[in-house]
Structures are given as C-alpha cells and as structure tokens.
Amino acid sequence: MGAMANRRGFIVTLLMLAPSTVLIAVFLIAPMLIVLGYSFAGRDAYGGIVPGFNLDSYRELFQPLYFPIFWNSVKLAFWNTVLCVLTAYPIAYFIAFRAGRFAPVLLILMLIPFWIDFLIRISAWVVLMGRNGMINSVLTATILDEPARMLGTYGAVLVGLVYAFLPSAVFPIYAALQPIDRALLEAGRDLGAGPVQNFRRVTLPLSMPGVMAACLFVFVPSMGVFAIPVLLGGGKSIIIGNLIVQLFLDFRNMPLGSAVSVVLLVFSSLGILLYMRALRRVEAARA
C-alpha cells in the first residue's frame, strides 16, 4: 500500500515536471547543440550546410573584417555597464535609505519602462535626437548655431543602451541595499566614522553582490542587442547582435552565424562564471 502510494507520487511528480523538462531539452538544449555542430560544419555555395568538422568559420572570425565588431561590442557593453551601475547605485541607495514611504512608488515607476514596448521607448529617442528633434531645437535656440548630429553616432547608441538597461541595474542593487541592518551604520557613526567612511567600509562592501549582479544583467545582454545600433547608430556602430542578424537573415551564412553565436554564448557564460566566483569570494570574506 505504502509502496504503491509512493510509486503513484513518483509518477505524479514526473508528469508535473515533464512539460518544462521537455521544453528545455527539445527547444533549448537540442537547438544549441545543433548551432554548436553547425559552427564546425562546412558550407556550400548557396549557404547550405555541408556535414563535416573544420575550424574554418572560427578562423574567418579573426579576420580584420570581423574582429573590430567584437572589440566594439565589448567596449560598448563595458561603457554601458559602467554608466548604468554608476547611475543605478545612487538611485537604489536613495530608494533603500532615503525615500521613506515613497520607496514603493519609486520602485513601481522604475518597473514601468520594463512593461513599455522596447521599440517604442527607443523610437522616442529617435524623435528627440533627430536633426530637427527636440534636443536640437533647444540647443540651437541657446548655445549652438547649427543643429548637432546626434543620430548615427556612438554616443547615441550608448544613450539608447543606458536608457534600455538602467532599470535592470537598479533592481539587483536595491535588493542588496534594502536588507542592510541600519544598526551597523549607527555603530559606524558611534565609532566616529564619517558618512563617506561609513559608506566605503560598511554599505558598499555589503552591497557588492548586488553591484555584481547588476553588471551581469547589463553586460551580457547588451552585446546581443541589434535594434539600438540600427535605429540610433545608423547602422555604423555594429555589434555582435547585428552581425548575427546579418549572417543569418541577410547572408544566410549559417556556419559563420553559428560560430558568432557560440562566441557570444562563451562570452556570456564567462560573465556568469566570473559573477559566481566573485560572489563566492565576497561571501567567503564576509563569513
């Protein structure tokens, strides 16, 4: 009787887990393995896959044509991460320590951009930064003689990226700051630590896991973005995401496109690994 109930319980558990396991295995892991296989395959004249094993696609990526794209992606992702984290920290700090009863309102406001269609938000910036856009009309009325070129520049892409990723940086930092025991800060104050010292020695170290999570959430996805460089950068500041779109949808070069995707996946996995190692170090230092 007991064994039968046990066996029935086991079957129920299996049935409950089956849909998500099948989903991940069939539509995530299997496709990724195919991409990995294709990245080592050959290619016929029409872009079709020729079974085989060679490193041609990876070798091609090191050519001067593609290498700048990788460098540009890492650079843009880096500056985006720096700007997002530097801006997000004071925001999260304010919400966690100073905002009082307005904190939930500020948090919900920070969530709204998440819910508004990404392209619509970016299109707002296309309008603002256009040659005859609002920013230019303010600038020409005050300090400039001629409208400045904003759309199609590196700076415009960076503004778009910060705009898109800022909320992703605020939430993890807030989550790390919020539970900090206020008594620790008081203790620091009683021992003569000024606000800066208190911040540097108490608040900042305790919030480091949140800062690292923010870096992860901003850095990894910003390399795969492709709409922002097209719409705000005029297609000149190309990054890995654009390369993947071009190779798959325009050139139909699946082996090379697969190799680029594998490289992006390796970058992201490295980011995740670094994050987990740093997190462990922080936790070990605290214990």
């Binding site: 995530l28 798959f248 996946l265 992201s268």
Partner: peptide, 14 residues
C-alpha cells in the same frame, strides 16, 4: 540569463 539572440538563432536553426 542566456543571451536571447543566441536562443532565437538556435530555434531558427532547429
């Protein structure tokens, strides 16, 4: 956590 574009490409290939 995985880059969305890589999952998208993988599904297309699949």
């Amino acid at each position: 956590v995985l880059p969305e574009i890589v999952m998208a490409v993988a599904l297309l290939v699949f």
